[in-house]
């Protein structure tokens, strides 16, 4: 049986590995939730991450019951994950029986009904940016300082992996846009040349012909250009004056 330290070290390697291998962000969320239950003295874990529209979403939970509880937290708009996300500060060893009174009247009752007695939450944070929170639940006892620090470290590393993944998706998208724009532009220049080569028009006149054809037929210039280049549209079609 591997020691707690060995398992923790392995988990860190797993999380960092997602930076290089074919990364699946859903796998990462699930991995973090599952490993928390395996390594720390907690009985359930759930992970919420902020979506593009700014709202929190439940991304992973160590069990279906925990997922339901996390969804209830979002629905009732109170609970450790939300407090932690908004403050950016961790919550440790919150006695749920005490929280029924004022802190989380609805959430704490639902969590107690699930058999949990203590709740914790650590922010998913890099510097000023908080992207979510990790919820941990216990049925008995409290969490030692050691586990608290390790849980925060795990959340920190997972946050970096998620942000890195987002940046790479953004870069890929911009590069695809640039590539498509250049490809379209090249097709337009080629079509201008083909038209000029057939008709003796200048490049500028050819461009005007292509553009007015595209307008008359309510089509994108780049699409018309591609049709000219691959022969779908013959030069004579493009040259035709507008029908009266």
């Amino acid at each position: 049986m591997a020691t707690r330290e060995t398992r923790l070290a392995r988990t860190f390697v797993e999380v960092v590995d997602t930076l290089v291998a074919d990364f699946d962000v859903v796998d990462l969320h699930t991995l973090v939730a599952d490993r928390c239950v395996e390594i720390f003295a907690v009985d359930a874990a759930g992970l919420m991450v902020v979506a593009a529209d700014g709202s929190l979403r439940v991304m992973a939970a160590s069990s279906d019951a925990t997922r339901t509880l996390e969804l209830f937290e979002l629905q009732s708009r109170e609970g450790p994950c939300l407090d932690c996300f908004h403050s950016g500060q961790p919550i440790f060893n919150q006695d749920l029986a005490n929280a029924v009174g004022d802190r989380w009247p609805h959430f704490a009752r639902a969590a107690l009904e699930q058999g949990f007695s203590t709740a914790h939450a650590v922010p998913m944070r890099l510097r000023d940016q908080v992207i979510g929170a990790l919820n941990l639940f216990q049925t008995t006892g409290t969490l030692a300082q050691d586990d608290i620090e390790s849980a925060q470290a795990l959340a920190d590393v997972a946050t970096i992996a998620i942000l890195h993944h987002r940046a790479s998706i953004q870069a890929q998208m911009l590069n695809d846009q640039l590539d498509q724009a250049l490809t379209s532009r090249i097709a337009i220049e080629q079509a201008k040349g083909m038209l000029a080569g057939t008709t003796g028009l200048t490049m500028e006149q050819s461009f005007n012909q292509l553009r007015s054809y595209a307008r008359r037929h309510n089509r994108r210039l780049a699409d018309v250009a591609r049709d000219v280049v691959d022969g779908t549209l013959i030069n004579a079609d493009v040259e035709l004056p507008p029908a009266t």
């Binding site: 250049l182 220049e189 080629q190 040349g193 038209l195 000029a196 080569g197 057939t198 280049v229």
Partner: peptide
Amino acid sequence: FHYVVHQASGMIAAQ
């Protein structure tokens, strides 16, 4: 972006 090369390619393709 060598647009003139692509224009010339189009002309040669027609020729």
